[in-house]
Design a binder for these strands. Sequence first.
DNA 1: GATGAATGAGCCTTCATTCAT
DNA 2: GATGAATGAAGGCTCATTCAT
Lengths: 197, 197, 197, 197
Amino acid sequence: MRQKSGDKDKRIAAAAIRVFARDGFHGAKITRIAREAGVATGSVYLYFKNKESILHHLFDALWKELHAAFDEVAHRRDLTAHEKVEEIIDRIFDQFGRDPSLALLFVNEQHQLLRQESGRFMQYYVDFLQLGERVVREGMRSGEFRSDIDARMFTNLVFGAARQLLHQWARAPRQFPLPTVRRQIKSVFLHGLLASR
Amino acid sequence: MRQKSGDKDKRIAAAAIRVFARDGFHGAKITRIAREAGVATGSVYLYFKNKESILHHLFDALWKELHAAFDEVAHRRDLTAHEKVEEIIDRIFDQFGRDPSLALLFVNEQHQLLRQESGRFMQYYVDFLQLGERVVREGMRSGEFRSDIDARMFTNLVFGAARQLLHQWARAPRQFPLPTVRRQIKSVFLHGLLASR
Amino acid sequence: MRQKSGDKDKRIAAAAIRVFARDGFHGAKITRIAREAGVATGSVYLYFKNKESILHHLFDALWKELHAAFDEVAHRRDLTAHEKVEEIIDRIFDQFGRDPSLALLFVNEQHQLLRQESGRFMQYYVDFLQLGERVVREGMRSGEFRSDIDARMFTNLVFGAARQLLHQWARAPRQFPLPTVRRQIKSVFLHGLLASR
Amino acid sequence: MRQKSGDKDKRIAAAAIRVFARDGFHGAKITRIAREAGVATGSVYLYFKNKESILHHLFDALWKELHAAFDEVAHRRDLTAHEKVEEIIDRIFDQFGRDPSLALLFVNEQHQLLRQESGRFMQYYVDFLQLGERVVREGMRSGEFRSDIDARMFTNLVFGAARQLLHQWARAPRQFPLPTVRRQIKSVFLHGLLASR
DNA sequence: GATGAATGAGCCTTCATTCAT
DNA sequence: GATGAATGAAGGCTCATTCAT
């Protein structure tokens, strides 16, 4: 029999990341994904139920990794809350920094998923934000962080800011080099904008 | 007195905001927009060239208002840079705070526009961010702001954070009340997270 | 506005009868039906939900007419059971005798419907056969008919025989002229094959 | 001893009967037939040219048996025409009575074959009906049968009636037990419905 | 201008068939 | 011969857009 080449699913997923990132979910044509993956159109359906399930697969993997990384950081005992915030920010950029297409996908097509499926992806999102909240509250209890801040909102601020800079980096990597981005985002969120202190 | 015939374009635009926000640009059907506007399907094409141009029209208006507001703030002489930053944040929330659908539209469908048209909307976006940069740099020159911050990145941080909280507010207004959101965002960006000072 | 031409649904249905009859349900292409109806492909979907619903529509109409005709005959008081049997046979041929395509459709695609939908079409079928049974039993009670016959089976015999001859007529009208067919079927079922009496 | 390898063609044919009967020719998937036969998908094509040829093979075998049986009966010298008619009816039910799937296949998918191939299957069909005609005419000549009957039509009547009852039996064996079915069909065709004699 | 029925290009998906192993 | 992954042609259906009234 013809052997499974073994990486067809990977190649399709990788091609889908590129095509979804470039053309958007709706602009992406299955035939195009197949071509970029170097497989026949029909082969896509050997590995994925349908177009939407490809997106689900990609976001599933993404969120699982993100979640695992955050979870690990959030529960570490050797880090202060301050350090955890920095580490979490680093993990986000580690996750997406390898692949601009992945960043664009995440940044642009997330809302597709939140729209339809009240289930899985919403849950990932909520869980992720709750982990952030927990770290912030931990820092507030320990006195590291200001206690007049709303932990949930702060987490959202960081998430939104990271999302935006990821987007910018993916669009113009030269103008938004990741090391600078990381440094800035940490600095601003931790120390604020004001000079005097 | 309602002029049934005199405001068709407005009614179409308003319906489009709702439908785009609810169903996404691709999920939105022209016939649905027409129905919600109380207009025949064909009439949509009397006022708009095509589906995309409705989106363009909406974002045009949005960006124009945003831009005018920012421009005015940025050039005021009676405000410190610090105050300008706060004012700009307020203006963003003023702009979208009236209408959750508008916020969802702005937050979710922006990337449609950045994708295809390298022109108009990219320009608005860039101009807007440059105005922000200018204000930040002004504050750095005057010594109000830390000078180890990258002005462009800071502006993006604020933009991304505001976008995220706008999104959350539009999804769950109770959990993200706008007054709190404004206060938090200003506080975090200006003073940072750390307690010690 | 462009006026509904008023008979598009009829033209599509008529074309569908021809195409279904010629190519079979699965061999029939929507585009072909549309072309034969003189409408655009998409127009088919203005009048019918999908391909299957066209078939349903056709059989619905067919069974409704058949049923009404049988019902009327079965309840008439001015006819003997013998005459009712003859009248029912006539009605079947009246129904299909106008249009060979209709006969082929009925004869060949009935099983499509019985397969999937345990509901509607099965019911028509069962109801129809029950009406036949009732007439036969009526004749048995009155002494017109032999009482050693199973009424349900007799009805099926007639139905099957009529179906077969309808098929043959539709395939070769010259060799199976309807008047002869009617006469033969009545004669055989009523008097049997044997000469001696 | 079961020879796993020696009867693949038989197993495929047997599986095809079940699947065609259950799902219809078009609803039947080759992969499904292969699975039910305990064979790889590709192996089907080692034994059959394509999907249609499986159907052809099945009907070929069916018709060949039917034809041989009828031929034998038709030429027997020890039977009256009357007895031959009864014997032929018996042979039909013998043929299909073993296997409801076979009956459903024969009854539902015959038209697939008559459609495309003007050749082989049409010939079987015609030959079969001609054998029937011959027997009827023989009975007419000998004075056993009424001579006001059209032999060809009578044969079709029997064929159609048998087909219908076979179908009903296959769908609901309890309600249409074969022995009763045989008896009824013979009785009706030979003696007719009327009581008086 | 207004209407909404009509249009038809385009895409996702299926599945009979092939072929490398 | 046997396998089953891979292929790609084909068709049902959608929906933005048009246009006769």
